[in-house]
Design a protein around this nucleic acid. Structure first.
Lengths: 196, 196, 196, 196
DNA sequence: AATGAATGAGATTTCATTCAT
DNA sequence: AATGAATGAAATCTCATTCAT
């Protein structure tokens, strides 16, 4: 379970994801996380202010990577439409590849209190901005209609992705999520593109 | 606070919505709900099996009315596209009209544990079926493309509505939600209709 | 241990005195007090806001009785000097009669934090006022010198009583405390009376 | 903060007085003392057996100086009565001059547990013996009554001094403590001297 | 049907002390 | 001699639920 080479900070965060995915948010005691990470309970508090801080850090860390990976891929693409597709695909792909993280983000972290959820929203802003950028770009270059309500479209996009992933998690990840990217993209894109 | 004419069952459910909207899910103790309803703590357990049962019943009751009102309106409409519009509009309208309920369904009840959320999903099935019906009808009569993945489209639709309402609640209901129905319908409908 | 006739409030306070005297302030967990009182841990919190509140209430209750008993006796005495003697004697007597309470007030409660000690001082004010009254009376009627610094004399008197009782408690109450009343009174009285 | 010329032992004790006076007994963690002394936490344990040992040593060191200074002055005085006065005055004076130490001895160290307080009493014995000596001397040479209960008188004296200083500390040292020496001496002396 | 006093399980966090370097 | 990262034991309080009246 323990990994001598990793710094304790990482060890604890990884353990937290595992423990929360396995036991659910409300049955994930600090002592369980510590045990899984192979450290003493008190050690947790050398790296995190309190239990909530573990969760916020977890989300910041994982979501930061999540978004920056998508960003990296998208930068190499020219067309807004293709960027949109890539975003959808990678959103599904990354969560597919880390089922524990999917459970934590889609189900367990939502059970947290309002303050924690506000912090989580803060972290999500970077992702939403990325969506906005793609939309603006597509509006500018004529790929999308030029009078889109960006804020609203972003809600459509994010709401769709979130619901699709949540359904997949609730169905215990029994089907291939990534394969749905094409269809989802088609539906969204048709909503945005110009029509004759 | 108390209402002599109402049966205690209703009194307790209404009190629950108020208390949860006001104090948040995690600070809504059974004793608080009892007090607001004007009954003793123990009385709650004559009408509900346990605390979770209050929440499920609350959701069943309110969501049942929510869906049946939409159903009633939609039955009087012929075109699938117009039905879709009506559904979106009424979804927004009903939650606009009951801000406490909006807070409870969009924010507070999500903090509940997995088992409760599964039961809530059970209640939602009636609503999702209604969406399915509209989609099938539109596919049949040629309003929508005839090879839609209904399950997926329903996720797009529900995910979108849910996210748009949640955003409105999180922004403290400061703008007119119903006015967004038209734009949301336009985006979704464009995604579904036939294109030449 | 339990006493069905007594109200729970009293039961808990009495248990607290016993438990603290026996185990010391820092080893007197709420659960120990509850057990000794014959109630559940949670019941404590129906009668007291928190653990500190038990201690403050304990002191208020016991000290209130302590002072009012002394007051009652003193009211029936005419001479300031005899009042002083009675106060000293009863101070010693009452603590002699309740050795557990003596341990708690002289040793254990002093280990509490500053805030609790301030509240304790608040309760003590009634006692100090009683001392002041005796002094003023004696100054007026010529029993004592008429230019005493009352505030200071009160400190001499209280400091003396407190130290004498503490010594007795620390010596494990092995000698007769009440018998020292006469000598203590003699020393103090000589300090206060007029000299030719 | 650190003082290169002082041995670490002294550095740590001085830091302890400062930290306790500033933060109170219960918020004076070993790590805080170490930081203020400019040493590592572990270093503390090269000089002291444990936390309690810091406090006992602190008291021994400071109280040792306290008593020996009083002894030195008193030795140069002939009359028991004047010795008594000097003791009172210097008791007040020394604590006046070191407000941090006054806070620590009068308020903070009292919050310690019974065992530590027994050790503190051990240290105090030297002071009490000094008082006894003065009393015996005065009884012998006719300054004081010759049938005093020395043990008891010593409690009156110490209890008085202690209470007067504590009051001054609790009143945040806002008045001149040393000026009260004369009055206190007068009250005590009158209690002890022969009367015709 | 209604009451409400009583129950008791369960978890976060602190901090004195150690010991490998 | 000195460091400081790591340890792990230990206790308050909440609140859903019961049951005697």
């Amino acid at each position: 379970m323990e990994n001598k080479s990793k710094p304790k900070y990482k060890l604890i965060l990884d353990a937290a994801v595992e423990v929360i995915a396995e036991n659910g948010y409300h049955h994930s005691q600090v002592s369980k996380i510590a045990k899984k990470a192979g450290v003493a309970d008190g050690t947790i508090y050398l790296y995190f202010k309190n239990k909530e801080d573990i969760l916020v850090s977890l989300f910041e860390e994982k979501m930061g990577q999540f978004v920056s990976k998508i960003k990296d891929e998208i930068e190499q693409i020219d067309e807004a439409d293709q960027k949109l597709y890539k975003l959808i695909e990678m959103h599904f792909q990354q969560l597919s590849e880390d089922p524990d993280l999917a459970i934590v983000t889609q189900l367990e972290l939502r059970q947290s209190n309002k303050r924690l959820r506000l912090k989580i929203n803060e972290v999500l802003k970077g992702y939403l901005t990325l969506m906005d950028d793609i939309l603006h770009e597509g509006m500018k270059d004529g790929t999308f209609q030029d009078q889109l309500n960006v804020k609203l479209v972003r809600q459509v996009l994010f709401g769709t992705l979130d619901e699709v992933v949540t359904n997949w998690v609730m169905k215990e990840q029994r089907y291939n999520l990534v394969k749905q990217a094409k269809e989802v993209h088609y539906l969204i894109y048709n909503g945005l593109r110009k029509h004759n």
